[in-house]
Design a protein around this nucleic acid. Structure first.
Length: 422
RNA sequence: GCGGGGGUCGCCUAGCCUGGUAGGGCGUGGGAUUGCUAAUCCCAUGUUCGAAAGAACUCGUGGGUUCGAAUCCCACUCCCCGCGCCA
């Protein structure tokens, strides 16, 4: 959530909305805000009168006076107040709803643009393996090597589900172990979070409007399936005051991710690239505000390094203002070269959410007791979304014999297996 | 799932039965005083609005009763103990 005080001088908000190329009922929000402020003042005044009168009644009672006049007046005031409070409640609900739909501000280094095609190339890394034959895509490869079963998954769960089979199950686990070791070596605190969290926690981490689009709800329970461990790692310190000396706090979590993919009809319908359920090792950093841009760059470098180790060629893109997620103030994507599709495809998203999540979740820090608290900054990045990464491995490490080599970095996690064959 | 106990201003705790401005201790910050690694005393120490004066809010969360709720009632939630179920 954004700071409500920004509404007092909305030029920043207007600029952000233009840059993000978004329609937003800002005027309506501004009106709600001024009505809300007026009403707050009125309610305060009435409460003050009530408090004074309550004291008066109390003192009169002590000297055996019955205070009938005051009690009568108090009744009137109380009625008046409950009417105003009903109005205030209604107004607050509307206000909060709109306020929570306002996306994050943008950092100045975010380039302006409308779509994916306006994203800015930052750098590429890793060398593309030369394949002197017609490369297959991951669907062909995984099917012919008996590494997946889509039909039976569709039968029991629907489209965008899959069974991993045989060596692909092991490759998935190997990637997870490699990723966890990789982060552990860099002193990240490893986590395995709850896979379901409450609405209160989810709301602070996700945009209200995105809820219905991506998040699965558990029927009859106040629980939602996490779309990523980011949701659990952002909310885990909800309502806490962190010690400044402990920052930055770096977490690395492994969890499955559950996504409705409601807005993705027709996109990537086959294979394991875009699915309802996948595993991901995710980085999450709580940072001091003044350090968050530096931490963002560090996290990006860690991620790029991981794909260097794996031998997967990637390019790093800085997302333009129109392509940026709503909670993020700045995002880099890593795209992997996919020979079978002859294209770069997104495998990593690395974002600085500045104080947006922290404000909604009430996560602050201070260096000394009694010092004024400040909101932390939160950052998140994929290290590896294993299903997408396996798409990249299958397509980049395929051989002209129709088999797939195992990347050297994964050998020790694959019982020294070096090749996947039928 | 059942029964019992609990959640109070950073930490600890009083207040709850019997409704009337949330008190104390520790820690922290500031000040005063004293000739000694320190002691003693005073003030401050949650959030919001406000330039300030001031005001409102805050006793796990949300409702209710009441002129008035930390206190009484209801629901939810988390922690502890016991029972049940269970990989």
């Amino acid at each position: 959530m954004l700071d409500v005080n920004l509404l007092k001088n909305p030029s920043l908000l207007k600029g952000m909305l233009v840059r993000r190329n978004l329609q937003f009922p800002l005027e309506e929000l501004l009106q709600l805000d001024s009505r809300r402020r007026d009403l707050n003042i009125k309610v305060d005044e009435i409460r003050h009168r009530k408090n004074v009168l309550a004291n008066l009644i109390s003192t009169k009672r002590k000297v055996d006076s019955d205070a009938l006049e005051e009690i009568k007046l108090m009744n009137e005031i109380s009625n008046n107040l409950s009417n105003l409070q009903a109005e205030k409640y209604e107004l607050d609900v509307k206000f909060k709803r709109l306020m929570m739909m306002l996306p994050n501000l943008l950092l100045v280094s975010v380039p302006s643009g409308n779509t994916e095609s306006d994203n800015v190339f930052v750098r590429s890394s890793g060398t593309t393996r030369t394949l002197n034959f017609q490369p297959k895509d991951h669907i062909d490869l995984s099917t012919s090597l008996d590494l997946v079963d889509f039909e039976r998954a569709a039968k029991i769960a629907g489209s965008r589900f899959y069974f991993l089979k045989n060596d692909l199950v092991l490759l998935n686990q190997a990637l997870i172990r490699m990723a966890l070791d990789f982060l552990s070596d860099k002193s990240y605190i490893l986590l395995q979070p709850p896979y379901m969290i409450r609405k209160e926690a989810m709301e602070g981490a996700v945009m209200l409007g995105d809820f219905e689009q991506v998040i699965y709800k558990i029927e009859e329970e106040d629980l939602f399936m996490i779309g990523t461990s980011e949701h659990a790692m952002a909310s885990m310190h909800m309502n806490e005051i962190l010690e400044g000396s402990k920052l930055p706090i770096k977490y690395g979590a492994i969890s499955p991710c559950f996504r409705k993919e409601a807005g993705a009809h027709g996109k990537d319908m086959k294979g394991i690239f875009r699915v309802h359920q996948f595993e991901k090792v995710e980085q999450f950093v709580y940072s001091r505000p003044e350090e968050s841009e530096k931490q963002h760059d560090i996290m990006l470098a860690v991620t790029e390094d991981f794909y260097e180790h794996l031998g997967i060629p990637t390019r790093t893109m800085l997302l333009c203002s129109g392509d940026l997620g709503k909670t993020s103030a700045k995002t880099f994507d890593l795209e992997a070269w996919m020979p079978g599709q002859n294209a770069y495809r997104e495998i990593v998203s690395c974002s600085n959410c500045i104080d947006y999540q922290a404000r909604g979740l009430h996560i602050r820090f201070r260096d000394k007791p009694n010092e004024e608290t400040r909101l932390v900054h939160t950052l998140n990045s994929t290290l590896v979304a294993t299903e997408r990464c396996m798409v990249a491995i299958l397509e980049n490490y395929q051989t002209n014999r129709g088999t797939v080599e195992v990347p050297g970095a994964l050998w020790k996690y694959m019982n020294d297996r070096k090749e996947i064959e039928l």
